[in-house]
Nucleic acid binder design. Sequence first.
DNA 1: TTAACTTTGTCAGTAGTCGACAAGTTTAAT
DNA 2: ATTAAACTTGTCGACTACTGACAAAGTTAA
Lengths: 108, 108
Amino acid sequence: MKTTFGEYIRKLRTDKGLTLTELAALLKLDSANLSKIENGKREFNEKRLDKLATAFELDLNKLKTEYFSDQFAKKMFEFNCSSETLIIAEEKINYLKSINVKQSEIKF
Amino acid sequence: MKTTFGEYIRKLRTDKGLTLTELAALLKLDSANLSKIENGKREFNEKRLDKLATAFELDLNKLKTEYFSDQFAKKMFEFNCSSETLIIAEEKINYLKSINVKQSEIKF
DNA sequence: TTAACTTTGTCAGTAGTCGACAAGTTTAAT
DNA sequence: ATTAAACTTGTCGACTACTGACAAAGTTAA
């Protein structure tokens, strides 16, 4: 699982013996654009994650993990972020969750 | 450091006794929009990170850590991602780096 | 060679972001 | 209570980036 998201899709597709055109149809997108996605020249739109999950009978949560980790890695690579960024990110998620709880408490 | 990026800016600003208008001028943006940023209703554009660093004499790397961790946390919170996402992200960064090294080797 | 598959380039349409301004609200001092 | 400064919120046009679509070129394997 250390591949990019594009490489990941490609593997899924070829393992199932599908052509770009066939998978593109399932995902409701152009085969040329799917090619670009697999080669990392376009982004896969997160709105299509559920379609991808159904196409390959995958767990959506695993897919989200694969997808968003890819997004984050690309950003951090591009901007040369320290690996501490991910640690702080985790802290912030908890902070956001706690805020959310508080807000719910106030609301109801 | 468990705050959002907006709260982080606000703290920096108020600690220095600056008004929105004053800081906005330093960052070359509208005070109304800076208000939205501090309140999490608009994004802080990453292109302005260096201006922010100079305004508060901060280390740009620390600032990037703060900024991108915030971005990632928000995404993960919004899409309810598993915390495994961050672990996989770290693996992928190493993968990207190794690819990059290989490409450099080929190129030169 | 030829047919299927894949890659690459381009472009118009569209969606989302950003700067700017106006109007409204809050805060603090008098 | 009045005022002024600080802050918030809503809106809108301009700008930018993303997306779908198609054509054309390149690759692969029979």
